Every structure is written in C-alpha cells, then in structure tokens.
Amino acid sequence: MDYPVLWPMPTRWADNDQYGHVNNVTYYSYFDTAVNAWLMRATGTDITALPALGVVAQTSCRFHGSVSFPDQLRVGLRISRLGTSSITYDLAIFRETDGGLELAATGDFVHVYVDTETREPVPIPDVVRAAAAELVTE
C-alpha cells in the first residue's frame, strides 16, 4: 500500500443499493470527493475560485471487494502523471477492519484543467501543481 494520502470517507445509508452493498457508481463519488477535498486542504484554497478548474476527462474503477453502510473507508491517493494541463490520480478504496485496511477497489481519475470562461485547456494552476507534486510516485 503505497499511497501518501489515505483520505477518510464514511459510507452513508443512501450508498447501499437493494443488494445491501454500496452501488458501483458511488465509488466514483468517493474518488471525486477525496481528490477535491484533498486538493482544498493541500492548497489551502477554494479550488472553485481559481481561474482554471479541473474537469474529469477519464475515470475507471476495478472492484476487489464489497463495502456497505456503516463501513468506514479510506481513499488512497497518489499521482502517476503530472502533465502541463492534466493530472492522473491513482486511487484505491480501503475498508477499515479490526486488522487494518482491506482493499475494496482501485482506479484512476484524470483532471484536465480548463479556463473557467472558455473551457479550453490551460496549465495547471501553480498552487495545485505545488500540492500535486508532493503525491507524484512514478
């Protein structure tokens, strides 16, 4: 487990589907929430107020185990690519157990930074790049 950040993520009652486990689409919400919450904390900035915003251009998820409410989760974050206008996050979802952490899912998430007005790609804002550089693992 080589993730510099393990962001806490509680499950919610509404996350469970009729089969009694967290619905697969919810894992993407966990990824999105963890990445953006970490960015806000790491930069000390309201990222929605920057002149460029990160839009999700690609995401994927591979399931390794099931989670359900009231599980407590950790979302592992690391960065495999820090480009000029995009960041590729490698992510993992772990379920907290008495014995530690159990892998539930892995995935990736690509933010492409665009101008808030034109929606054209622009360089990653300096404050975001500085924070992201600390999570680059490859």
Score class of each variant (00 low, 15 high):
Y27K: 05
F109Q: 05
G65K: 07
G44R: 14
D98K: 11
L103F: 03
T84M: 11
H64A: 09
Y28E: 08
Y89D: 04
V56E: 07
V56R: 07
V22E: 03
S85K: 13
S80Q: 10
L73A: 02
Q58S: 15
V110G: 15
V56M: 08
L82T: 00
V25R: 04
A34D: 00
T48P: 00
G54I: 03
G83F: 08
I93N: 03
D108P: 00
A92K: 10
R74D: 01
L39H: 03
Q58G: 14
V22W: 04
L91C: 08
A57G: 15
Y19I: 10
I47V: 15
N36R: 12
G65M: 07
A34K: 02
G65T: 09
L39Q: 01
L91Y: 01
H21E: 04
S29N: 09
V56K: 06
W38I: 09
T106W: 11
S29D: 00
D46S: 14
F63D: 01
L91N: 09
Q72E: 13
H111D: 03
S66R: 12
Y27P: 00
E102M: 06
Y30S: 03
T45K: 15
S85A: 12
V110Y: 13
T97N: 09
N24K: 09
S29A: 08
L53R: 12
D46G: 09
I93C: 10
G65D: 07
T97A: 07
V56D: 06
Y89A: 13
S85V: 01
R81L: 11
P51M: 12
R95C: 03
E96Q: 09
Q58I: 04
H21R: 04
A34W: 00
R62N: 15
L101D: 01
S29I: 00
V67R: 03
L101S: 02
S85Y: 10
P51C: 13
G20Y: 02
S29G: 10
T48R: 15
